[in-house]
């Protein structure tokens, strides 16, 4: 089974995050297309969750707004399905474990495949707990993107071994640039897989624009300007 992330470039990757927040789903699609026009190499769409502990309170506010506007897991799948008529850019879903689990793990990953979702990031599912999601993900050709952090080498090695698509480098506020450099070189010594991050201060293979974009959209920035904004990171 092929996956659109297999064709992701090896460096200079730009990802762009969006969650509907206050805007409706049609407008969300327009923004996604403008982000692609601006050069986004993959799109990360947040399925809103009421209590995203791995995200900051800015993202939580957007999630809560989206939930108030009746956005749900099915709305997001439908959105991706429509997008697939216009684009083959990889789509990565980000959400917590519970929206996936409560939807039914089998049904969730089947709908990922049917709508054209390529991968999923579940920030509250570490290596220890990923097994219960893996079977259905594999069956449907959907990658589970794993996070890595500056921990011990054995741990990083285990995570890297099974990693597909790309790896998400995360850090504690107290981690230094040196910690991250060491993390990335540890990963690279094990496997040639792109490492992306949300933090511009870490040098790796790719950057995901997240809070920046949702804040600009919230302030009313139009699609064209979002496209330019994304382009400015190329």
């Amino acid at each position: 089974m092929s996956n659109r992330l297999d064709n992701l470039k090896k460096e200079g990757i730009l990802g762009a995050f969006i969650t509907p927040g206050d805007i409706d789903i049609e407008k969300t699609e327009e923004y996604i297309l403008s982000m692609i026009e601006g050069g986004a190499d993959f799109i990360e769409i947040g399925i809103p969750f009421s209590d995203p502990i791995a995200e900051d309170s800015t993202i939580q506010e957007f999630y809560i707004k989206a939930l108030e506007n009746k956005v749900n897991t099915d709305t997001i799948f439908d959105c991706v399905k429509r997008l697939r008529k216009d684009t083959e850019v990889p789509v990565v879903i980000i959400t917590n474990a519970n929206p996936v689990f409560s939807y039914g793990i089998d049904r969730f990953f089947e709908n990922c495949r049917l709508s054209g979702v390529d991968a999923i990031i579940m920030p509250d599912v570490p290596y220890e707990e990923v097994e219960e999601f893996k079977g259905e993900a594999d069956k449907n050709g959907v990658y589970i993107i794993m996070a890595v952090a500056p921990t011990d080498e054995d741990r990083i090695e285990k995570i890297v071994k099974d990693a597909k698509g790309f790896l998400y480098a995360t850090a504690l506020a107290e981690n230094t640039v040196e910690d991250m450099e060491k993390l990335i070189s540890t990963v690279k010594a094990k496997k040639d897989i792109p490492v992306v991050t949300k933090d511009e201060s870490f040098k790796c293979d790719g950057l995901i624009l997240s809070n920046e974009i949702v804040k600009l959209i919230d302030r009313g920035m139009e699609t064209k300007a979002i496209s330019h904004f994304v382009k400015s990171y190329k």
């Binding site: 570490p126 290596y127 220890e128 952090a149 504690l172």
Partner: peptide, 11 residues
């Protein structure tokens, strides 16, 4: 039970 926490907290 289990340990459903972000990777950065596993340490």
């Amino acid at each position: 039970g289990g340990q459903y926490v972000p990777e950065i907290l596993m340490k």
